[in-house]
Simulated scan of single mutants.
Amino acid sequence: MRYVKWTFWLMLVLLVGGFLHYTLPQHDIVRIVGTENRRVDIGGNSIFWARSEAGMVNSTSRDVFFINAVDARGRPHEYRNEDTGWGWPPYFKIDSFGLQTKAKDLSSTSEAPVWVSVTHYGWRNAFFTIFPNAVGVKRVEGPDVTIIPWVPIIVLVLLVVLILMIRRMFIRFRERIVDPAMVRAGRARNGVSESVEDMRSGARGFGARVRGWFGGKPKA
């Protein structure tokens, strides 16, 4: 049972951690090298793309904005630029056209680099053809600038506080309701056991008296 319990908690931590890592905003310091509008066929990986109502299309094939960039080490970064609308994650993004225009205006070359911070959520996976969704672009001073992730910090702190509150409420509930009920149940069970044992003792005593009446030695 110990291995089952630890496996359960490990799977729960991985599931919650993966969900938070995908959903919470991240920041990349990159240099935008181009923007494009690409026709994409949404298939089995539709969960990693914006919902159709956010893009105002009902087809599984639609045009999607993309932002191409490289970081200070020359590694490529590709972002999709889709509206999230009022769905999940709750970024309420409805300005993908404006963001695409801003990203195009901030494009630069290696000879005259312009470094920007791209705020995004999601993952990049070439095998499943999924891209992080850019939700903001901001010019920064250089590739070594540090962006403090205030939103993830606040969310994680609130999550820890919520977990501690729920744990405290559970402990109080157990102390006030569950533990006294278990004590009362134990006492009742002990009382029933004692009553049954008394009944058995009485029955044995009565049986002994009956046997004594009928099986006693006759008088001389």
Rank of each mutant, 00 (worst) to 15 (best):
G44V: 14
H77Y: 14
A203G: 00
F128K: 00
P90F: 04
S117N: 10
R139I: 06
G122D: 00
G43E: 11
I148V: 15
I147G: 09
G212W: 00
F8T: 13
R51P: 08
T146M: 06
P132K: 02
K102Y: 04
I154L: 09
F8P: 10
K138S: 10
D41M: 07
I42V: 14
H27L: 05
V33M: 06
R204G: 08
R38H: 08
Y3M: 12
K5T: 13
M182C: 06
A112M: 01
R209T: 05
L106C: 02
V137H: 10
W6F: 09
G186M: 05
A103S: 07
Y91R: 03
V137P: 15
V118H: 01
G191F: 13
D95N: 09
V210G: 02
P149A: 00
F214Y: 12
R184V: 11
K104D: 07
I47R: 07
F131R: 00
R172A: 15
S61V: 10
Y121K: 00
L15T: 14
I166C: 11
G34H: 14
R211Y: 01
F8Y: 15
V157I: 13
I148G: 03
A134W: 01
L20Y: 05
D83F: 04
M169A: 12
P149H: 00
A112G: 00
G216P: 03
P76A: 04
